[in-house]
């Protein structure tokens, strides 16, 4: 069983963040390999209509391909997908992304809980969920769902978070697999990449 978990290739890394998370994301992205073996999805709270701004910013700061998300966009490894504002982002079994305009959750759309729960349902143990800095409690239930489905959970060390409420809240309510700073998160992701079946050989 344990062996299984280690050799299970991570297909998706999903990162959730709110206030103060952008810098952390940029730092992590700058430190990880250009062609990771997994897809990266970023769910970040922000004002509506700022989609292309964030996409462009990330595209400048990382060599990893940044792909704008439209409904039923197909996910590929080594690509970053950013949840558009004003929609919830959901995962289909055929590795496409669906968007949904239903009610806000935790005052948020996109909600981190919604995307984490959906990803957990589809990816189970092939998933890593990372919760960063923020000022609300979004993300904790989602992390719990990822954990329950056998995925790996990481919370940013609140000591290093610009707005520690969100990671603190998570740590108070569940035991994440790792509590790391930006550097630690990047190192962990590089390790997963190195251990992926197609690269380890």
């Amino acid at each position: 069983m344990e062996e299984d978990k280690v050799t299970n290739p991570v297909k998706l890394v999903i990162i959730g963040g709110s206030a103060g998370s952008l810098e952390v994301v940029l730092k992590v992205l700058a430190l990880i390999t250009d062609k990771p073996s997994f897809a990266l999805v970023i769910v970040m709270h922000r004002k509506s209509g700022e989609d292309s701004l964030l996409e462009e910013l990330l595209a400048i700061k990382t060599k990893i391909k940044v792909q704008a998300v439209e409904d039923k966009t197909e996910m590929k490894p080594a690509t970053i997908y950013i949840a558009p504002s004003d929609y919830h982002l959901l995962f289909e079994k055929n590795s496409t992304l669906s968007l949904d305009t239903s009610e806000k959750v935790n005052y948020s759309r996109p909600s981190i809980d919604v995307s984490f729960e959906s990803a957990a349902d589809v990816y189970g143990s092939d998933l890593v969920g990372i919760l960063l800095s923020g000022a609300n409690s979004d993300g904790t239930e989602g992390l719990a769902a990822i954990k329950a489905a056998g995925g790996t959970t990481i919370v940013q060390d609140p000591e290093t978070a610009e707005t520690p409420y969100m990671p603190k809240y998570a740590i108070q309510h569940l035991q994440p697999d790792y509590i790391l700073d930006a550097k630690g998160i990047a190192a962990f992701l590089n390790l997963i990449d190195k251990n992926s079946p197609d690269k380890a050989a």
Partner: peptide, 9 residues
């Protein structure tokens, strides 16, 4: 229907 969203609903 998209299963991800239908299941949630």
């Amino acid at each position: 229907y998209s299963r991800a969203s239908l299941k949630r609903r």
